[in-house]
């Protein structure tokens, strides 16, 4: 491919599009500047990322960075859990037994046909009233030794917000898990039946076949859509701000309101999300290339 790379040449369509873009940007800038009479003020915003702590004599993360860290934790745990949920339901969805197949189908259709917001509100009610007491998270955090607590802080953030973060992770994972399920199902079904026969002919059981033959090939085939879904998960993590999980969007609202630097705050937040998602995209690209090279 590289040897055939076309020389970059602009034709009149490119030039027109470019001109329109510049004009539109200039117009928006003009409106904001003159008509809305918006006073840009970036000076105070840096303190909302990091602030100087007089007591500790060092820079500490302020609201926006704390929010970013929580978002990253949500995303990481969400991806891990959504992957587990997706693989489990994806396998059930392609299985021979009717009941697991129906269960998986019901889950997928339920999530896909309800707006994410509505799902999160309903599911959060269920989690906060039923699941969290069952897991005993609050008791666990309260009784944890300082050593464990230090670990928990690295993994889930500030101890008093841990139940809050876990609720967010569960909501997010159940929401995105349904989409991952569909992707995994497509992957499993794209593996030719001859692979099943080959696996059986060397004596593998159904489970061994799934584990060593079907699933690895299925995952290899669906890395691109899976990557897309995980990036969507990072962005969708902003939904759980509505159930008061104190992640980036939630704290951005607070910051924007309290400073009334609305544009500045949201532009910074947009850049933070963009940075995270774009890094993920680059990372997944590498994984994809790596797997493609190994595969053939």
């Amino acid at each position: 491919m590289a040897s055939h790379r076309k020389r970059l040449r602009l034709n009149w369509i490119d030039c027109t599009v470019f001109a329109v873009l510049i004009a539109a940007t200039a117009y928006v800038g003009y409106r904001v500047d003159s008509v809305l009479e918006y006073q840009w003020d970036w000076s105070g915003i840096r303190d909302y990322l990091y602030r100087w702590d007089e007591d500790q004599q060092r820079w500490v993360a302020n609201l926006l960075m704390q929010g970013l860290y929580t978002t990253l934790r949500l995303a990481l745990w969400g991806i891990a859990l959504a992957a587990i949920v997706g693989v489990a339901f994806g396998i059930m969805r392609t299985g021979r037994r009717l009941f697991p197949r129906m269960l998986s189908r019901a889950y997928v259709e339920l999530v896909r046909n309800i707006p994410p917001l509505v799902f999160v509100f309903i599911f959060y009610f269920f989690i906060s009233s039923q699941v969290m007491p069952l897991l005993g998270v609050e008791e666990f955090v309260r009784d944890a030794t300082p050593g464990t607590l230090a670990w928990l802080e690295v993994l889930f953030g500030t101890p008093n917000l841990i139940p809050n973060v876990i609720s967010g992770v569960l909501c997010l994972a159940m929401l995105e898990g349904a989409y991952v399920t569909e992707i995994v199902r497509a992957g499993i079904q794209s593996v030719p039946k001859t692979q099943v026969e080959a696996g059986f002919s060397v004596g593998l059981s159904r489970w061994q076949l799934m584990q060593h033959v079907i699933l690895p090939q299925a995952v290899q085939r669906v890395v691109p859509p899976l990557a897309g879904q995980f990036i969507t998960l990072v962005k969708d993590s902003s939904i759980v701000s509505l159930i008061s999980v104190q992640e980036l969007t939630y704290l951005a609202v607070e910051t924007a309101v309290s400073t009334s630097r609305i544009f500045e705050v949201w532009i910074i937040v947009a850049f933070l999300y963009f940075g995270v998602c774009f890094s993920c995209a680059l990372l997944f690209n590498r994984i994809e290339k790596h797997m493609a090279v190994r595969g053939q």
Binding site: T194, Q195, E197, A198, G199, G203, S205, G295
Partner: peptide
């Protein structure tokens, strides 16, 4: 079935090796 498959090997027309 499991016992039989252990003792019976099979070679297919399309090879059916595990590509991964």
């Amino acid at each position: 079935v499991a016992a039989v498959r252990k003792e019976v090997g099979m070679v297919f027309q399309q090879f059916n090796l595990f590509p991964h």
